[in-house]
Design a protein around this nucleic acid. Structure first.
Length: 670
DNA sequence: CAGTGAGCGAGCTTCCGCTTGACTT
């Protein structure tokens, strides 16, 4: 073989070698192969007249020794090496590191190529138009890498000194914790406000006794032309008293047709969000299953922020729609989606099936999780090239003239006229669809029609505090702020759970006392770094580096100088922080003096004596599960955590009784 | 599926982003 092609993913390598002839060998790096050392900072800083130089101590990744050996072997005696790593910032850096490692090998020609699609024509085009490594792009990556290393490896040790050993801080993880802490505080300070809703059931007035006219409900919104908020029961009663004998008449009827376009195909983030809400998969589980589908060649790459679809794929999808659903269901023109996100790297396509003709049903008997995830991906990719759904929307405005005041009551109805892409979701949406349609069918009325009051309804309500983050909403929040990347959403969530900064209860995140303590410390002393806008500003500067407008060491130098100064000052001034504990109202059984308190340790909550370290009493933190008993011995059931922090249910009588389960036990015995 | 942890005495803890691996019900 004459040439070597180097890519990142082994699956991509396999696909590629099927396209290329015998003259090509294809190997993969499996991501980065060289990086800053794990055990030390690996950055030496030199300053001359305010100008900074950063000397980076890159080392081959110990886990990649085997891969590197294979790369070197494969490179041996090849005439030409194509560096075909992903066409983005990280990919460019991987290409450069690979070139560095292979450069001692021989004198082959090394060129950089970028595959934007894995199709014969795209590959040929790329190989015939080789370029050089783009060092501006590599520099942008180095700036990102050094910044993250400085923040992480300088601030974490500060936390070890000022709070507790083993803690961590980072540009991404600490802001993720901040989101959760800030949300919790909003919830804490939220004061529910009372309000009342008033509804009237009406029907069209017809003389005579016939009584098969369908009624409809309208909601009170205005008083004498002004928006009305009903605040209490007294006010409600006054209004009801007047509405009881009011004259009802249709004021205005608005009808319009609404076209609802399909949502774009999946990216990593939206796939994770949908898989949590629809299938209950954690983002970690989703990624593991997607990996299998990818390796089997069933879907395109699953770590992506791009909404692009290959032209060939779009035309295949469109043919499929025409054949299986008819031309009516096909979008008039191919739909192309653009990412709103500025930080998107667009190295891959959106997530789609590699062959739309492979329908989810064909999985039957195979892995059920894979089938269900594939089903989501398949439908979404298909839907995006289908026609819009058409709704008939009707708004009815009713005027109620009371003795003293005039009220406005409204309702809105929506009836589906043409399902379009929603046809794919009919089964799933049947229930919701049925309900909304049943509720929203409105009778034919026109302005000036008299209406009869059937009955008045009212309900006391309270404004709700903002909801705690779920894995889906948290990932969405991160993506919207440009924090983290497709490959890191799931690991970031795991990290903040592993560190015990947050805990998840019934799918919702709450900060722990430890998480709050660390967060408040970081924000007090380093508000600029953990500002929600920090990453966005960083990305702007990285863009300027990639475009050759800025020099990376200058950018990092500007960050470094004040950061170092602040770091030294905080180290001097900041008092050691105690993580607050919560007393459980019991005396310590060992020393009989201290109170028992809940502490957050490396493995989660545990009970300890408040006099620690004078008294070393400790016990596990046990949380009872109400209403159920152990099916084996009848004892109470407690919520426990594995060493890795995963929650499970076990018998309180452990180790005498070893009953345990991952799922929440119910009353029925299995 | 499961008994930790909390600074000082050595040496240890830590980042983000790219990829898959061994098995996880």
């Amino acid at each position: 073989m004459k040439s070597l092609v180097i890519v990142e993913s082994p699956t991509k390598a396999k696909t590629l070698s099927n396209f290329l002839g015998k003259d090509y060998e294809v190997v993969s790096t499996m991501g980065h192969i060289r990086d800053l050392p794990e055990k030390k900072l690996g950055i030496k800083v030199e300053e001359k007249k305010g100008k900074y130089k950063f000397i980076l101590d890159y080392v081959s990744l110990p886990k990649k020794e085997e891969t590197i050996k294979k790369l070197k072997q494969a490179a041996n005696k090849k005439e030409k090496i194509f560096l075909a790593t992903d066409p983005d910032r990280e990919g460019e850096a991987i290409a450069w590191h690979t070139a560095q490692i292979l450069s001692g090998n021989g004198k082959q020609q090394m060129v950089r190529v970028a595959f934007h699609e894995i199709t014969k024509s795209a590959i040929e085009k790329a190989l015939n138009n080789p370029g050089e490594i783009n060092f501006s792009l590599v520099d942008a990556q180095q700036a990102r890498r050094v910044l993250d290393r400085l923040v992480g490896y300088k601030l974490s040790p500060l936390l070890w000194r000022k709070i507790r050993r083993g803690l961590s801080a980072g540009r991404v993880q600490s802001v993720t914790v901040r989101l959760i802490v800030d949300r919790e505080r909003e919830i804490e300070k939220f004061i529910p406000e009372e309000y009342w809703e008033i509804w009237a059931d009406l029907k069209k007035h017809i003389g005579g006794l016939k009584d098969n006219i369908p009624p409809f409900s309208v909601k009170l919104v205005k008083l004498n032309g002004k928006n009305l908020k009903v605040e209490n029961e007294t006010q409600t009663k006054q209004i009801l008293e007047e509405l009881k004998d009011a004259n009802y008449e249709v004021g205005k009827v608005e009808k319009k047709e609404i076209a609802q376009k399909p949502i774009p195909p999946f990216t990593t983030s939206t796939l994770q969000q949908r898989a949590v809400s629809r299938l209950g998969f954690s983002s970690k589980r989703t990624m593991r299953i997607a990996q299998f589908l990818y390796e089997k060649g069933l879907i395109t790459y699953h770590r992506t922020d791009s909404l692009n679809l290959a032209e060939e794929a779009v035309s295949q999808i469109r043919q499929f729609i025409k054949k299986n659903y008819g031309a009516d269901f096909l979008a008039e023109k191919p739909r192309f989606y653009k990412t709103k996100s500025k930080v998107a790297q667009e190295a891959h396509e959106a997530i789609r099936p590699t062959d739309v003709n492979r329908q989810p049903e064909e999985f039957s008997g195979e892995n059920r999780d894979e089938e269900r995830l594939y089903d989501l991906i398949w439908r979404r990719a298909l839907a995006c090239q289908m026609a819009a759904a058409i709704w008939d929307q009707t708004k009815i405005d009713v005027q109620a003239a009371g003795l003293k005041n005039i009220y406005n009551l409204v309702t809105e109805g929506k009836i589906i006229k043409f399902s379009g892409w929603m046809k794919l979701y009919e089964k799933i949406n049947q229930e919701t669809l049925n309900n909304t349609v049943a509720e929203s069918i409105l009778p034919e009325v026109k302005a000036g029609d008299d209406l009869d009051l059937i009955k008045l309804k009212n309900e006391q309500k309270f404004t709700q505090p903002p909801a705690r983050y779920t894995e889906a909403t948290l990932i969405k929040a991160l993506e919207e702020r440009g924090i983290g990347r497709p490959s890191t959403y799931a690991p970031t969530v795991s990290t903040i759970e592993d560190r015990q900064y947050v805990e998840k209860n019934e799918g919702k995140f709450k900060p722990s006392v430890l998480g709050i303590t660390v967060n408040d410390f970081l924000i007090e002393y380093f508000p600029e770094i953990f500002d929600y806008q920090f990453t966005a500003k960083m990305e702007d500067e990285l863009d300027d580096i990639a475009n050759g407008k800025l020099e990376w060491e200058e950018v990092i130098g500007e960050f470094y100088a004040p950061f170092e100064k602040k770091l030294g000052a905080v180290n001097e001034v900041a008092e050691r922080v105690q993580v607050p504990t919560e007393a459980i109202g019991e005396k310590c059984p060992e020393c009989k003096e201290g109170e028992l308190v809940i502490r957050v340790g490396k493995f989660g909550k545990f009970i300890s004596c408040s006099r620690f370290p004078d008294c070393k009493y400790s016990a596990p933190f046990i949380q009872n599960l109400e209403g159920v008993v152990c099916p084996k011995c009848g004892n109470k059931i407690v919520i426990k955590k594995t060493r890795k922090g995963k929650q499970f249910y076990g018998c309180a009588n452990y180790p005498k009784c070893d009953w345990a389960s991952w799922r929440k036990p119910t009353l029925e015995k299995p």
